[in-house]
Amino acid sequence: NKFNKELGWATWEIFNLPNLNGVQVKAFIDSLRDDPSQSANLLAEAKKLNDAQA
């Protein structure tokens, strides 16, 4: 379904953000699993944090 596809894509993108540490990645992935409907918002937050830590 739509959420599974978005969840998978967001998970892959978060895993590939180079400036996040393992704890941050795990926290974002756990949040995605808790509420897949928020995948776009969580991915945006992860990208912002990644950019801030560059």
Rank of each mutant, 00 (worst) to 15 (best):
K5C: 13
W12D: 10
N41K: 14
G8M: 15
K2T: 13
A10K: 04
A27H: 15
N4Q: 09
S37N: 11
S39G: 03
S39C: 09
E6R: 04
D30G: 06
E13K: 10
D51G: 07
N19T: 02
W9A: 12
K47T: 04
A10P: 06
L20H: 00
I29Y: 05
L7R: 02
L32H: 01
L7T: 09
L32E: 00
W12C: 08
P18S: 08
D34S: 09
N1D: 13
V25E: 01
E6C: 11
A40W: 10
L43W: 05
A52D: 08
F3E: 11
K26N: 08
E13W: 11
D30N: 12
I29W: 06
V23T: 10
L20V: 01
D34A: 15
D30Q: 14
Q24T: 04
V23E: 15
L42M: 05
L42Q: 02
P36M: 05
A27K: 12
N4Y: 10
L32I: 12
R33C: 10
D35R: 05
N41L: 13
P18V: 09
S37P: 01
Q53A: 04
D34Y: 09
L42K: 07
L43P: 00
Q24W: 02
L7A: 10
W12L: 09
E13S: 06
D30K: 13
L43C: 09
P36W: 06
K26I: 09
F15S: 12
S39Q: 08
L43G: 00
A10G: 05
L20E: 00
N41F: 13
K2N: 15
K5E: 14
Q38T: 05
A27M: 13
Q38E: 05
F28W: 02
E45C: 07
Q24V: 02
T11A: 15
P18D: 03
E6G: 06
T11C: 12
W12T: 10
I29K: 02
F15T: 12
R33K: 12
N19W: 14
G22R: 12
F3K: 03
P18T: 07
F3H: 12
A52N: 08
L20Q: 00
I14G: 02
E45S: 06
K26A: 06
D35K: 08
F28T: 00
W12G: 07
R33T: 10
G22Y: 13
A54T: 08
V23Y: 14
K47L: 10
Q24K: 00
A27S: 12
K26F: 04
S37T: 07
W9F: 11
A10M: 10
G22F: 13
I14W: 03
D51T: 08
K26Y: 06
K48F: 12
D35G: 02
Q38N: 13
D51W: 08
I29C: 03
P36S: 04
S39K: 08
G22I: 13
V25Q: 08
K5P: 13
P18Y: 03
W12K: 12
A52F: 13
D30R: 09
E13A: 11
K5W: 14
N41I: 09
L32A: 04
W9N: 06
W12V: 09
V25K: 15
E6A: 05
N16F: 05
I14A: 03
A40H: 12
I14C: 04
N50A: 03
A54E: 11
P36V: 04
L32W: 05
N4I: 11
P18M: 05
N4G: 09
N4V: 02
A44E: 15
S31Q: 14
E6D: 12
D30S: 11
I29T: 04
Q24I: 02
N1M: 06
R33Y: 14
A10N: 02
L17G: 00
I14M: 06
N19K: 01
Q53G: 04
T11Y: 14
Q53T: 05
L43S: 02
N1I: 07
D34H: 15
Q38K: 14
I14D: 03
D30V: 09
A44W: 08
P18A: 06
Q24F: 01
A54V: 06
T11K: 10
D35S: 09
L42E: 00
L49N: 03
K47H: 05
A54F: 08
W9G: 05
D35P: 01
N16R: 07
G8F: 15
L42C: 06
V25M: 05
N16A: 08
D35T: 05
K26L: 10
E45K: 08
K26W: 11
D34P: 02
S37Y: 06
K47Y: 10
T11Q: 14
K47Q: 11
K26E: 07
Q38F: 09
L20T: 00
S37K: 07
Q53F: 08
A10R: 04
N19G: 04
A40F: 10
D30L: 08
W12P: 03
A40Y: 12
I14S: 02
A54Q: 11
R33Q: 10
S31G: 06
L43K: 01
L7D: 08
D51R: 10
Q53W: 03
D51S: 10
N50K: 01
R33A: 08
K5Q: 14
K47R: 14
S37D: 07
L49M: 09
S39N: 06
L7E: 09
N4S: 08
L32R: 00
A27I: 08
V23Q: 04
N41P: 06
P36C: 04
L7V: 05
G22P: 15
K47I: 11
A27Q: 13
A40R: 11
L7M: 11
S37E: 05
N1T: 06
N1C: 13
F15M: 15
A52Q: 12
N50R: 00
N4P: 04
K5G: 13
P36Y: 04
W9E: 08
D30F: 04
Q38S: 13
Q24P: 01
S31W: 13
K47A: 04
F28N: 00
D35H: 09
